[in-house]
Design a protein around this nucleic acid. Structure first.
Lengths: 349, 349
DNA sequence: CACCACTGTCGAAGCGCTTCAACTACGCTA
DNA sequence: TAGCGTAGTTGAAGCGCTTCGACAGTGGTG
C-alpha cells in the first residue's frame, strides 16, 4: 500500500501538500493539484483510515444500533439500515453495526474512538439507552421519540399526522363514524412511544372533523380482528370508515369484513397505516398512509451529520406520511348504517 | 479521554508495560498486572482504535457486505447479520456494514485499512465480486458457493443434504413416488448456486432410495402451485410425498392441496425446506428441514477469524440442516394411489 | 519605493499506540 | 564463584496522517 509520502514523492511535492489537496483545507494551484491527483491515481493510493483518525480525531464512521431479535417488522428495519448506509456514504462515512443486545457497545465504540456519531434505532418511550447516550456527548440521533430526549436529536414517522390524514380523508368523503384499530395491546404497553402519538392524533383529528370515533387495539388473528371490530362498532354504531394501524392484523381484519359480507369500499371504507416499502408487492392492499422508512433513515444521517459539522441545535423531526389511494375508500352509502351488519355474537370467539 | 501514558503514570510503569498487559504478548508479574488493571479501571481507559490500527496494522473490524434490495428473504438476512455481529464480538471484532450496491466498497475498506477481513453474503454462481475479492488478498468468507471460489473460503446451507434428508425421511416411511417443487424459475436462472445443489441432491437421493421422483419450479401463487403439482404428478402418477423448497409458495401449495380435498398427511406427506428462524411463529407449518441461518453466520465469522489468525487453508463448509417433525408426514396409505385424486383439468388455471 | 496582504508550499511536531532491542535482577548450574 | 538463561520491564522508534507556523513569491497600495 502506498503512503502519502509515496504520492508526494511521485508528484514532486511535500506530504502536507498532498494532504491539503485531499482535504481542500488550503488553496492549491491547479497545476500542483493536477500532478498530485495523477500520482494518487497511478499509485492507487488510499489514505490509511487509522492514521487519519489518529491525526484528525475524525473516523468518518458512524455507529448504527439495530434491534435484531423479536422486533416488530424486519422489512422496516432493513429499509432503515439500507437508507442509513447509503446516505452515510454520501457524506463520505461508513457504518459500524451495533446490536441491541450488546449493552456496552455504545460506550465501547465512542470511548475507543471508533466512530464519530451514533444513530440508535427503536427508541422506546423510557429507553435506558437515552441516558447513556446523553452522557457520551457525541452527536446522536434517536430513531423514535423518548419521553425525555435529554438534548438529543430525534426522528420518527409522524404517526399523529398519519392518522390525522387518514381521518381527514375519510371525513372529507362524508364519513361520520370512524373506527381505529391499532397495535397489539402489549406493544402499546411496552414501547408506547408511537402509540401515544397515534392515540392523540386520532382523538384530535376526530374532534377537528366533528365525527364520531372509537379506538381498539387488535391482535393479529381472526378472533382478534373480530373482537376489535366489535369493540369499535359498539362505541360508534354507524361506523363506515376504518383506519387500521397494524400490518400484521390487516389481513385478518379484511378477512373478517369479507366473511361478514361487508363490502369494501361500498359498506366500509378502509385505510391502512403501514411502512411504505415493506409489503409493496402484496396484492389486495388497501388505500394506505405510507410511513416512509427510507426517508427517516436518510433524515437520521443528515441530522447526525449536521450536528457533526456545524453546531446546530438538537431537533426532533417527524417525517410526514403520504396517502396512496388504492380504491378502498368511497363516500358512505346514503342513508347510513351501512357496514353495521354485525356478525352474530355466537359467531365471534 | 485518558491515553496509555496516563495509565502508565497512574500505575507507575511505562507505557509499553501497559501495552503488554493489554495484549498479553509478554509475561508481566501479577503485581504489576494488578496495578495496571486497576489504573485502567479507575481512569476508564480505552485504547484508541485508530492509533492501535496504525501501530499494529490490525483494526479488529470486519466488513460484512449485505444485500439490501430485492433480496429473497429479509428474515434470513437479518438472522445472518445478527449472528455475524454477535459472533464477531466474541472474537473482539466489530462489524462494518457494506451494501451490495456500492460496488467499490470492498476496495475502499480494504485499501483504506478499515477492516481486517471480509464476509460477503448472497454469492451467486458467477458472482463478479469473487474476482475482486480474490485480488484483494484479504481473509474472506463467501456466504454461498460460486462456481470457482478462487481460493476463498465459502460457507452455505447444505441444500443437497437437506433435500436428501427430506427424501430419505419420506422413503423410510414407505413413499415410492416423491415430488419436489422448488424455487421460482427466474430465481433458478439467476443465482443458481443452490438450485444446482438442490437438483443434484434430489436426483441422487431419489436414486439412492430407489423411488420415483419428479421436480418442478413453482411460482408463489395459487395458479403457480397448481401448475407445479400437476407437473410433478404428470411425471410420477402415484405421488404420495412432496418436498417444497420455496417459503413464498408453501402457503399456496398447501392451499391447493386443501382445495383439492387432498389430506395431509393421510393422502400426501409434505416436507418443507426453509430457514430455521424465519417464520418460527407461523401456525400450520409442515414438517420441515430447517436451514440454520444463525449457524451459517457464526461459521462464517469463525472461518474468517481462523484465516486471520493462523494460516489455515481455505475451505468450503456446508452446514447441515435438521428435520423437525410437525406431523405432516406419515406412511402412505396401503394400496397406493392415494393423493392422486387430481383436480380436473378445467379446475386448473 | 517601501510596505502589506495574500497565495501556495513546506518542514516538523504530534496524534496514541505497538514492538523491538536492550537492560536489570534473579536464581541456577557447573 | 563465574557464567548463563529467563522473567520482567523499559526507552525509543515508527506506523501514516493532519495541521500549525513559517516562508518565499507575487501583486497591489499609499
Amino acid at each position: 500500500m502506498p503512503t502519502i509520502n509515496d504520492v508526494a514523492e511521485a508528484a514532486g511535492v511535500s506530504a502536507s501538500t498532498v494532504s491539503y489537496v485531499l482535504s481542500g483545507k488550503r488553496s492549491i494551484s491547479a497545476a500542483t493539484r493536477a500532478r498530485v491527483e495523477r500520482a494518487i491515481e497511478q499509485l492507487g493510493y488510499r489514505p490509511h483510515a487509522g492514521a487519519r483518525a489518529l491525526a484528525s480525531s475524525r473516523t468518518n464512521v458512524l455507529a448504527l444500533m439495530v434491534p435484531l431479535r423479536q422486533s416488530a417488522d424486519v422489512n422496516v428495519i432493513m429499509d432503515f439500515v439500507g437508507a442509513v448506509a447509503t446516505r452515510a456514504r454520501r457524506h463520505d462515512h461508513d457504518v459500524l453495526l451495533l446490536t441491541q443486545d450488546e449493552t456496552t457497545g455504545l460506550e465501547r465504540v465512542t470511548g475507543g474512538s471508533l466512530v464519530d456519531a451514533l444513530i440508535v434505532m427503536d427508541i422506546e418511550l423510557d429507553d435506558p439507552r437515552v441516558d447513556v447516550l446523553a452522557r457520551l456527548g457525541r452527536p446522536t440521533v434517536l430513531i423514535g421519540v423518548p419521553r425525555d430526549p435529554r438534548g438529543l436529536s430525534c426522528v420518527d414517522f409522524d404517526f399523529g399526522g398519519a392518522v390525522g390524514t387518514a381521518v381527514e380523508h375519510l371525513a372529507a368523503l362524508g364519513h361520520r363514524g370512524i373506527g381505529f384499530v391499532g397495535s397489539s395491546p402489549d406493544a402499546v404497553a411496552r414501547r408506547a412511544g408511537y402509540a401515544v402519538r397515534v392515540r392523540d392524533g386520532f382523538r384530535a383529528a376526530v374532534a377537528a372533523a366533528g365525527v364520531a370515533g372509537a379506538m381498539s387495539p387488535v391482535e393479529a388473528s381472526l378472533p382478534g380482528a373480530r373482537a376489535a371490530l366489535a369493540a369499535v362498532r359498539a362505541e360508534v354504531p354507524d361506523l363506515t370508515g376504518l383506519v387500521v394501524h397494524n400490518e400484521g392484523a390487516l389481513p385478518s381484519v379484511l378477512a373478517v369484513l369479507a366473511e361478514e359480507g361487508t363490502r369494501v369500499p361500498q359498506d366500509v371504507s378502509v385505510v391502512s397505516i403501514e411502512a411504505a416499502d415493506a409489503s409493496q408487492h402484496l396484492p389486495g392492499r388497501p388505500t394506505s398512509i405510507d410511513l416512509p422508512s427510507l426517508e427517516v433513515g436518510t433524515a437520521a444521517v443528515d441530522m447526525v451529520m449536521a450536528r457533526l459539522e456545524g453546531s446546530v441545535a438538537p431537533e426532533t423531526r417527524l417525517v410526514p406520511a403520504t396517502l396512496t389511494d388504492r380504491g378502498t375508500t368511497a363516500p358512505p352509502r346514503r342513508g347510513g348504517r351501512a357496514g353495521t351488519r354485525r356478525v352474530s355474537p355466537s359467531r365471534r370467539r
